[in-house]
């Protein structure tokens, strides 16, 4: 193959399947895709039938671009199931396609070195270097089957439908109807709150508290805020805290 040496693709067997790593951070997407295509053509017989973990490094990829990669792999009889990426937007795009964004239960990093598992990883969040209290803004309705996970606060401008879940280390604000599951303060912060214009969730979690709303709940006609009070999750009309 005569692919440019500047866009190397790492291929490595790991416990979860085959790791494909995209190295060149500045390469345009078209070039990446072409390199990947060449690499797959070359190693098809070896890689055929394997489950692929794609490490895109700090590439910022859109859903459609990830979908193109997914199609390319599936045409080569490989199944993409995990995308590892540094930018939160790329991970969010991968999740929108139903892909995992971390190696579940893995205690080794990408090079096979042992990792110390932090409490964040145990809480089901991505173990990452502390990225500060950044917030994620999602400008659409989260439909059934989607999971939005973020290390900071999360704001949704839209509904959270039944079957969808939001997991945040900080607070969660839903500017819309909250009918799915939200977990705020997911790494143990019981001071986190959940606000929604219409709070009719299937379940709420704050830190390690879980609340199931009463059956036949009538939606309140005003926005509500849920927080932990005396060891219980309590919903009350949403107003500025004293």
């Amino acid at each position: 193959m005569t692919g440019s040496k500047s866009t190397e693709i790492r291929v490595k067997g790991i416990r979860e399947g085959i790791l494909l790593g995209l190295n060149n951070h500045s390469a345009p997407f078209a070039e990446l895709l072409q390199r990947l295509q060449e690499e797959l053509a070359e190693k098809r017989t070896f890689l055929k039938g394997s489950r692929i973990v794609l490490d895109v490094g700090d590439h910022l990829l859109q859903r459609t671009q990830l979908a193109q990669i997914q199609t390319l792999l599936s045409e080569n009889e490989m199944e993409l199931w995990t995308v590892l990426a540094e930018p939160a937007a790329t991970r969010e795009a991968a999740r929108a396609l139903g892909l995992a964004t971390r190696l579940a239960g893995s205690n080794t990093d990408l090079d096979g070195n042992d990792l110390a598992i932090g409490s964040a990883a145990q809480a089901g969040l991505e173990a990452e270097a502390s990225s500060g209290a950044n917030a994620l803004l999602v400008l659409e309705t989260i439909r059934s089957g989607r999971s939005v996970q973020h290390e900071g606060h999360v704001t949704i401008l839209g509904d959270v439908n039944p079957g969808a879940q939001i997991i945040a280390r900080g607070h969660v604000v839903v500017w819309g109807r909250l009918r799915g599951m939200v977990h705020a303060g997911a790494s143990g912060d019981a001071s986190a709150v959940i606000c929604a214009l219409q709070l009719t969730p299937t379940q709420l979690r704050i830190a390690n508290h879980i609340a199931i709303p009463p059956e036949e709940q009538q939606p309140a006609l005003f926005p509500e805020m849920a927080s932990v009070r005396d060891g219980q999750i309590v919903a009350e009309p949403w107003r500025v805290r004293e």
């Binding site: 979908a67 439909r143 059934s144 039944p162 079957g163």
Partner: peptide, 15 residues
């Protein structure tokens, strides 16, 4: 309806 909601999400993801 739950499954339709999931499907609509996937259709949107495929643009």
């Amino acid at each position: 309806v739950r499954d339709a909601d999931r499907i609509i999400g996937l259709i949107e993801a495929e643009e």
